[in-house]
């Protein structure tokens, strides 16, 4: 079944690099033709800008409480003449400012977790696929162990013990992802191992490391990016779920997921702004990653494109 999963992802030949410009043009054209990916890219660009410049844009200190002004509605007057544009939360903190700061942490957690998981998974997959045999067995059994174990349980177990924290969260979410990458990379490596250009590199006397990382890896990057863009979405959702269970980031760190989790007691009291704004931020970001992922897959998979 692993081989089936990667079946739709075809790799491109190494000449690709020389055709980089042409490929890029083709990508832009395909993207514009599909319309939605452009919009998604714009959204993600905006999120990225907010993540980088959020602290400059935020009108107030995101952690500054003001319990006398708690649960203020959007546009209500804040402390010292400021305005709570998107309302204030249960401790009187400015929702807008937390949202802007939260962009950075949410994105950081999402992207870093993917990098951690992707890096471990890719290396494991490359090594397992290239060498095969005992090493392959060990990695794949490790993968089976992890998959036989609902990820959320593993995450809960480690976070209960290690305590909340951005780094812990990234590690746990990242480790939760590696098997997916490992399996796909392994399958790709298995087929690439026998390809002519790899044989050629071997014949030229390239070192094993060089073959794995210089010759094979570049050809696997495309399918990896597709999975990664889908994965960011699920990692952001997982962060929200862990926050709900009280295992997310520490309280002074705003993330969209934890903001949404904190809103749960306020929904029945009609404090809609606490859920709507972080919810919207999550939905838009996740949606954009999914759209980009869809487009990337179609773009990189000639078979599907033909049909288009």
């Amino acid at each position: 079944m692993t081989d089936m999963a990667s079946d739709g992802l075809t790799t491109l030949s190494p000449q690709r690099e020389s055709n980089f410009r042409r490929e890029l043009k083709r990508a832009v054209r395909s993207m514009v033709a599909a319309k939605w990916p452009v919009l998604a890219l714009v959204v993600l660009g905006a999120v990225l800008i907010v993540a980088i410049f959020g602290p400059l844009l935020a009108p107030l200190d995101p952690n500054r409480q003001n319990i006398m002004l708690r649960l203020a509605e959007p546009m209500a007057e804040g402390p010292r003449g400021a305005t709570f544009w998107l309302g204030s939360d249960a401790l009187g903190r400015d929702v807008l400012s937390r949202l802007l700061y939260g962009a950075r942490i949410s994105l950081l957690v999402g992207v870093c977790a993917i990098f951690v998981g992707g890096a471990i998974g890719t290396v494991a997959g490359l090594v397992a696929g290239y060498f095969g045999g005992r090493i392959d067995d060990v990695f794949m059994r490790l993968g089976d162990i992890q998959l036989a174990f609902p990820f959320i349980l593993l995450a809960i177990m480690f976070l209960v013990v290690l305590g909340p924290g951005v780094v812990n969260l990234i590690l746990v979410l990242g480790i939760g992802q590696w098997v997916t990458y490992a399996r796909i990379v392994r399958a790709q490596t298995l087929s690439l191992r026998e390809k002519e250009f790899v044989e050629a590199a071997r014949a030229l006397g390239d070192s094993t490391t060089s073959i794995i990382f210089r010759t094979i890896l570049p050809n696997i990057v495309a399918p990896l990016t597709v999975i990664a863009s889908f994965n960011v979405a699920s990692v952001i959702l997982a962060e929200a779920a862990l926050s709900f269970l009280g295992l997310g980031v520490p309280p002074e760190v705003p993330t969209w997921g934890s903001m949404l989790a904190e809103s749960r007691e306020q929904l029945i009291a009609n404090k809609w702004w606490l859920a709507v704004f972080p919810g919207l931020a999550i939905v838009l970001t996740v949606l954009s990653f999914n759209i980009i992922g869809d487009w990337l897959r179609d773009f990189l998979d000639p078979r599907l494109k033909e049909r288009g």
Binding site: V160, V161, G163, P164, G246, L247, P250, P251, E252
Partner: peptide, 10 residues
Amino acid sequence: EVDIMEWASV
């Protein structure tokens, strides 16, 4: 430095 922990186990 606020350190909020899981109640029962930690």
